[in-house]
């Protein structure tokens, strides 16, 4: 089967998938109730006439199916609607807040990957040694601690006690640190990235080490040793690539679910990213934003899964596309 044929088939499948997601999400948000009524219920001074007017303005007086078709039709034309809280286009909000999310998530994954590779290789080369035991134990600990707990701990130590790093936000409110916007932004990134790195490293290390240990037992590794290949080259040339497939699966999940896991980190650090936006939108029933972000998560998962499947084929010649 040709790669292009495979991609086309997957894309067609993805359209049905995304359609299903959109229906379910829309139905769920709709089931919560009329956001205008809920929002204005706490403000007794507003007349029923004003409420009716706003309801009509947002088209909320229409039946759900009509509203779904309108929303979906706009979505297909690239129009995500307008936030009812911020009164800004949802697409514009998602891109600007999304950039902030990527700013901490991507380094959090990439640094973790590098750290995990180094730790897993060190541990696997000395299986059952003290080093191996230490790496395993700390990775196990890292995976058992909830992410938000680590985040709060980082804030307590580095912000509250030591006062080195800021505990919230992506930029300084007043003048930037050391007069440089870049340094200021990096300085704010340290703690959230550290939390994400910590969490991602633990799982990746455990996964990679166990795969490496398994592969180092194979005869083709012994064959490489018998031909005189240095241990380092055996690890990087033979073993690591074979150990990469399950890691790739996990990495793709990390990237695909980036927006889904962002709310925790971004709430802990009050980080102005999509996750923070999402949580606020849910609390305030800002339904265009909820729908938009949820669809973005679904699209990201679909795209990342597709890319992962293509990457499998490149890494492992035994995997066939059909």
């Amino acid at each position: 089967m040709l790669v292009t044929q495979f991609i086309i088939r997957r894309l067609v499948f993805s359209i049905f998938l995304l359609f299903g997601v959109s229906v379910i999400v829309f139905a769920l948000v709709n089931a919560v109730g009329n956001p205008i009524e809920i929002l204005l219920a706490e403000r007794p001074g507003i007349s029923q006439q004003a409420i009716d007017q706003m309801t009509a303005y947002y088209g909320l007086d229409q039946p759900a199916t009509t509203r779904y078709l309108m929303w979906a039709g706009n979505l297909l034309q690239g129009d995500f609607g307008t936030s009812i809280i911020y009164n800004q286009p949802v697409w514009q909000m998602m891109t600007s807040w999304g950039l902030e999310t990527l700013k901490i998530q991507v380094p959090g994954i990439l640094i973790a990957l590098a750290l995990a590779t180094a730790m897993a290789v060190t541990a696997a080369m000395r299986q059952y040694s003290r080093v191996d035991f230490g790496v395993m134990a700390s990775a196990m600990l890292g995976q058992s601690l909830p992410g938000f707990f680590v985040g709060i701990l980082l804030i307590l130590i580095f912000s509250y006690w030591l006062g080195i790093f800021p505990s919230y936000g992506a930029y300084s409110m007043r003048s930037p640190l050391w007069g440089s916007h870049l340094l200021d932004a990096l300085w704010h990134m340290v703690l959230p990235v550290a939390m994400l790195t910590f969490f991602n490293t633990a799982a990746l290390t455990l996964l990679m080490r166990s795969n490496l240990v398994d592969i180092l037992r194979h005869d083709f590794v012994t064959a490489a040793r018998a031909s005189g290949l240095p241990e380092r080259r055996i690890i990087y040339g033979h073993a690591l690539r074979n150990a990469l497939i399950p890691v790739l699966t996990y990495l793709s999940l990390l990237f695909g679910l980036m927006l889904g896991t962002a709310p925790v980190t971004e709430t802990v650090f009050t980080w102005p990213g999509v996750g923070y936006l999402y949580i606020n939108a849910i609390q305030q029933l800002d339904y265009p934003v909820i729908l938009g972000v949820t669809m973005a998560i679904a699209v990201m998962l679909v795209v990342v899964t597709l890319l992962t499947d293509i990457a499998y084929v490149l890494i492992d010649p035994r995997i066939r596309l059909d």
Partner: peptide, 8 residues
């Protein structure tokens, strides 16, 4: 087991 499955 003795041939690397990822290598030609």
């Amino acid at each position: 087991l003795s041939l690397n499955p990822r290598w030609t």
